[in-house]
Amino acid sequence: MVSFGIFSLSVCLNHILCNDFCVADLSPSAPRVNGFPCKDRANVTSKDFLFTDFRTAGNVSVTGTNAYPSFGTVLEYPALNTLGITHVRLDFGIGGVVPPHTHPFASETLFVVKGSIYTGFISFDGVLYAETLQQGDIYIFPKGTLHFQINVGTGPAISFNSLNSQAPGFLVAANQLLLSNIPAAVLESSLGISKAKDLNLLEASVPPFWG
């Protein structure tokens, strides 16, 4: 037996800690750990590693912002389990917007598949870094930063986004601020709103899809 610190070659050979993959077992009876337990390796096939959901465009008309995210998380794509990856397809109608949001547990890259997208993030010292991207361009959003996307082209746009966590988190700024039961007095003072009816108008205007 060859030792590697506190681990050993025998541990890896027994497929206890050193699996190259761990296709998630999403069945209700499977025990829950940090992530999902592994599907029995004997039942894994090449189809487990194939994901085809991004072949179909998302319905941008249902979100209230004319943009739609199609997710490829471990729940839709169990082969991602333990690999630290999440994928997203973003479809944009003309003028479509993905609202400002954060992923507290992941950095993200955006690759423009089609169209022209203005995108950017706010750094921790309050600086906006933003560019207009064309087909084939990539932009990166550092972990935890507030970022957004808007289609600034004359037709539909598509991007393919990757995040370096299977559970990146998705926190929409407007929902957190306006729909999380923060006392009205706090919001009125923080936003410079003098009348509660103005606050009510803002709350009612938040697109529910992105909650």
Rank of each mutant, 00 (worst) to 15 (best):
H101T: 02
D48A: 00
S107G: 15
D125R: 09
A57G: 13
N34I: 13
N34M: 14
Y118A: 07
G58D: 05
F121C: 05
F105D: 11
T73D: 01
V44S: 12
V97C: 05
T109M: 10
S116K: 13
Y77W: 13
T56I: 14
V88K: 00
V62T: 12
F51D: 07
S46F: 06
F105Q: 13
L83S: 11
Y77H: 14
G95R: 15
I117L: 10
F111K: 08
K39A: 01
L83C: 07
V127K: 14
D125A: 06
F36H: 08
P100G: 04
L83G: 04
E108K: 08
L75F: 06
T109Q: 07
T102C: 11
R89A: 15
T65R: 10
T86F: 01
V127N: 12
G72A: 13
F111C: 09
N34K: 15
V62F: 05
E108I: 02
N59M: 04
T56D: 14
A57D: 15
F71N: 06
T56L: 15
F92N: 09
E108P: 00
S116A: 12
N43T: 12
K39H: 03
P69G: 01
S70D: 08
P78T: 08
V127P: 04
N59K: 07
F92H: 11
V62M: 11
A106H: 00
P78A: 09
V33M: 08
P37Q: 07
A67E: 04
V112Y: 02
S70A: 12
V62C: 10
A42H: 12
I85V: 12
V88Q: 01
T73V: 15
S46N: 13
A42D: 13
D53E: 12
T65S: 15
G93E: 03
G120T: 06
N34H: 15
G35T: 02
G72Y: 00
F92R: 07
G120H: 05
T109G: 02
C38K: 10
F51A: 09
I117Q: 09
D53Y: 11
V33T: 12
Y77G: 02
T73I: 10
H87N: 12
V62W: 02
K114H: 09
Y68K: 09
H87K: 14
F121T: 02
T102F: 00
K39P: 00
A42C: 13
G84R: 00
A57S: 11
F124E: 14
G64D: 03
G35A: 09
D125V: 13
Y68I: 05
F49P: 11
G84M: 05
L110Q: 14
S70M: 14
T63V: 12
D48N: 09
